[in-house]
Design a protein around this nucleic acid. Sequence first.
DNA 1: CACACTCTGTAACATTAGTTACAAACAATG
DNA 2: CATTGTTTGTAACTAATGTTACAGAGTGTG
Lengths: 209, 209
Amino acid sequence: MQESLKSILSEAGIEDELIQEIQKVGFPKTARSGELIITPGSTSMHMPIVLEGLLSVVRQDEEANEILLYYLEGGETCAMSLACCIEGKRNDFKVTAEDNSVLWMIPMNYMDEWIQNYRSFRKYVFSSYQTRFDELLETIDSITFLNLYERLYKYLLDKKQATKSYEINMSHEQIAQHLNTSRVVVSRLLKQLENEGKIELERNRISIL
Amino acid sequence: MQESLKSILSEAGIEDELIQEIQKVGFPKTARSGELIITPGSTSMHMPIVLEGLLSVVRQDEEANEILLYYLEGGETCAMSLACCIEGKRNDFKVTAEDNSVLWMIPMNYMDEWIQNYRSFRKYVFSSYQTRFDELLETIDSITFLNLYERLYKYLLDKKQATKSYEINMSHEQIAQHLNTSRVVVSRLLKQLENEGKIELERNRISIL
DNA sequence: CACACTCTGTAACATTAGTTACAAACAATG
DNA sequence: CATTGTTTGTAACTAATGTTACAGAGTGTG
């Protein structure tokens, strides 16, 4: 675990000195596939770095309708929690482990100091902000400019990308929630995708061809 | 103009020393209502601070469909252009003056130094990032969880808020573009809002009641 | 294997949003 | 004030998405 943390940070250009500090003050956290990691309304005091696995970040409204914003894959971090913490704001997200996952949690109070002292860490944090921002934009693009058929297909391809697997183990109901639509609609469109030879359907599994 | 810049920055907690530097290395830029300030594909080397007026930030797809992401009001800045610049990325936005506006343009190359040396500037930049991010989330919420009738009404109220005026001087066509729908649909729903006593319609003008 | 539960397929229908077409009102200009 | 271009209103229609209802297939458990 320490190894994977080290290689992720060093890949990001962080110097050994800071890596050691991150190892010292942080701690690991594991989550089983399906486990809820952050609930809306909570306030977290840590910035998580994903060492292994896959997290989904989902937005919810008052009536518990949902939409998937983006995934956090191995090696990625979510600097967004920074501001959420600095400004004492509440979390507006639901973060779920889509897979058995390992995180490295860094207490927030070191952030400002590191941002000040390490150019590499500044870059790391800003780059994380920017990546999240770009992903939100892509989500907006999908919702706005694609119809549901296209969005669904893109969803499957993105999931394939994120899990590096051609097999998606989800029920239609779960997919419908990520897209904020109904199960019936998803089933209908999935069947269409199958008829067009783009996917293959089984119970709790979709294979991308 | 220098006065308004100074009061904005000092309001944001920036110390006099840095304010003076910002005044020294930046320069003003004016834009008439309707003027295009940033086009998709361009690369800007400046971070703009809005001194007066109102900017709209719009997302476009390949077929020139559009959707309004958020407004930049007087006193606000767009630190997003930071990363856009650091990473040499292209701009994916269209920024338009919704009103006669005055901006203060700061060359990017000072950013890193200021972020390193001034805690206040760090806060300012991060807070800008966070505000933009929150606004994107609100946009996603609207698109995802509201129907067009509700979105349109919210659009009008937001515009009222941004311009601090109960009169909106836009054609139905312009509104339709911001919402990525068609003029006919907007006219239909506006008429409905009028019938329900929420607004009053005239040519090129909507009054919010 | 009997039972309960979850998941998927499909039909029929309702609602929302998008499109096409056209007429009338309004504004600007020579 | 005649002409042209823009804006708005409205009807009629199409397409996309959402809803309800139900049946059958698959899975897990005692």
